[in-house]
Design a protein around this nucleic acid. Structure first.
Lengths: 255, 255
DNA sequence: TATGCTCTAATCCTATAGGATTTTAAAGGG
DNA sequence: CCCTTTAAAATCCTATAGGATTAGAGCATA
C-alpha cells in the first residue's frame, strides 16, 4: 500500500531512463556553454552536479563522444570539444550543401499531407518567434532552424541521410560559435569594430527575417511539389547561411 | 624498479582503454553473427564472456547504440539491430551515391604524395587478397573494400563527410547480409535456385575481380588528378555494387 | 475462457573500494 | 636561479555487491 502511495506521490513514473536524461542534460550544458569548449568534464563533479551516479554519466559521455561533442583522452578524462575551426566549419557547410538540397528535392517529390502539415506548423512557430526580443528570439530561431532542417531531411524519406544530418549537430556547433562571440563582446569591449558589426548584422536585426524568408521559400516549393525549386532554394539558403556565419567562425579562430 | 620490470614483462603497456577494446570486440561479434541480428544482448553474459566488468560493457553498448548497431529498449535491455530492410539498404546506397562520388572528385583534386602512396598500398593488398580461396578471400575483400572507401572519404579532405561515411558502417551491414545468406544456404539446401545463384554469382567468382577492377579505375583517376573521371568511376562503382548486393537484401527480406 | 493477482527473473541504477595512471608539488643537486 | 628526480594527490578505470523497478509467466478466480 504505502509503496504504491509513495509511487503515486511522485511526479509520475519515470518514462525515460536516467542515462538518456543525463545525455540530454549534458548536451544542454554544452549547448549553453555551462560546459565551455575545451573544458575538462569531471565525472565525479557531474555526478554530484546532476545528482546521479557515475554509471549513467559514463553512458551519456560515451554517446556524446560518439557524437563528436565530447573528446575522450584515455586515462586522462573527458573534455568538451573545441569550437569549430574555420576548416571544420567550412567542411560542415560543404557537407550540408551536398546532402540538404537533395533532401529538399526528395521531400518535394514525396510530400504527403502530414508532411505538409508538419512544415506549415513549423513555419507558424517561426513566425511567432520573430516577435520575441533579442536573446530569446535568437534562441527560438536557432531551435526553429534546427527543427526545420531536421524535418526536411526526414521528409526526404532517406533514413541514412536524416540520421547523418542529425549527427552533424550543426545547430549546436553554430550556436556555440554565437555564444562564444557574445561572451567576447561582453568581456572585451575593445574588440575590433568588425566583431561588433558581426553581432549586429548577422545575429540580430535582419538576419532572422532573412532566414525565415528563405525557409518560407523552401517550404512553399516542397509543399507545392516543385523539386527543382526546392533544391535550388535550399542550396541558396545554406550558402547564404554559410556567408552569414563564416565571419563568426573566423572571428573566434583569430583570437 | 620491480614496477618497471613488471610492466615490461607484460605484453606491453595498454594503449587503448578497456571500453574501447570492448567496443571493437562487440562490434566484431555483431560482424560475424556471433551476436545474431535481433538477438538480445545481455550485459552480464557479455561481461562473463569477455572477462571484463559491466562498466566498459555499458560504455561500449552506449556507443554501439549511437552507431545504430545496437538498439536499446529502456528498462528492457539491449539487442542487436536487425538486418537491413530493402528500404534501408536502398537508402544507404542512395546516400553513398550522394557523398562518395563527390569525395572521389575532391580526393582527385587535393591528392598528395602520401595520399597516392596510401592508395597504391591498399590496391596492392587487394591484389594479394584475390589469391586467397573462397571464404578468407571474401573476408579479405570485404576488409579491403571498407578500407578503400574509407580512405577516399578521408582523402576528400572533408572531415564531416569522412566521419559521416564511417558512421554508416555500410560494410558491416553488407557483410551481415552476406553471412545471413550463407547461413540460409547451409541450413536449407532446398532454397530457391536463385539464392544459390546469388551466392555463386555475386559473392564468389567474378564479383571480386570486378570490384577490384573498378577500384583500380577510381584509384588511377584520383592519383592522376582527373576529377570528373574519378567522380564518374565512383558513381558507377557504387551503382554496380548496389546491383550486386540488392538481391542479397531482397532474398533475406523475403524469408 | 478471460481477467486479475502474485511471484520470479531480468534489468537498471547506485554505492563503494581499490588498482593504474597522470599531474602536481616539493626537495635536492648543479 | 633552474633543472631533475621523487613523492603525493587527484583522477580515471575497473570490479563487485545489492536495492529498486519493471516485464513476463504462472496460477487462481469469476
Amino acid at each position: 500500500m504505502n509503496r504504491a502511495t509513495a509511487q503515486a506521490e511522485k511526479i509520475g513514473p519515470r518514462r525515460s531512463v536516467l542515462s538518456d536524461e543525463t545525455y540530454e542534460m549534458v548536451k544542454a550544458m554544452i549547448f549553453s556553454h555551462e560546459i565551455a569548449p575545451g573544458q575538462r568534464v569531471n565525472i565525479d563533479a557531474l555526478s554530484l552536479r546532476l545528482g546521479v551516479s557515475q554509471t549513467p554519466i559514463r553512458e551519456a559521455l560515451a554517446r556524446l563522444e560518439s557524437d563528436g561533442l565530447i573528446a575522450k583522452e584515455p586515462l586522462k578524462g573527458y573534455s568538451a570539444t573545441n569550437l569549430l575551426t574555420v576548416k571544420e566549419f567550412d567542411d560542415l557547410f560543404r557537407f550540408r550543401l551536398l546532402i540538404e538540397p537533395w533532401a529538399a528535392e526528395q521531400a518535394a517529390k514525396n510530400i504527403s499531407n502530414t508532411g505538409k502539415a508538419a512544415i506549415r506548423a513549423e513555419m507558424l512557430i517561426a513566425k511567432e518567434a520573430l516577435k520575441f526580443d533579442s536573446n530569446s528570439k535568437i534562441e527560438a530561431l536557432t531551435e526553429h532552424d534546427a527543427r526545420f532542417h531536421t524535418l526536411i531531411t526526414q521528409l526526404s524519406g532517406n533514413a541514412s541521410l536524416a540520421q547523418s544530418f542529425e549527427r552533424t549537430h550543426c545547430h549546436l556547433h553554430l550556436f556555440r560559435l554565437f555564444v562564444a562571440n557574445q561572451k567576447n563582446l561582453i568581456e572585451a569591449t575593445d574588440r575590433p569594430q568588425f566583431v561588433q558589426e558581426l553581432f549586429e548584422q548577422y545575429y540580430q536585426s535582419g538576419s532572422g527575417q532573412l532566414a525565415i524568408k528563405q525557409h518560407n521559400e523552401i517550404a512553399r516549393a516542397i509543399i507545392g511539389g516543385e523539386q527543382k525549386i526546392a533544391r535550388q532554394a535550399m542550396h541558396d539558403h545554406i550558402e547564404s547561411s554559410l556567408k552569414r556565419f563564416s565571419p563568426a567562425a573566423e572571428a573566434i579562430n583569430e583570437l
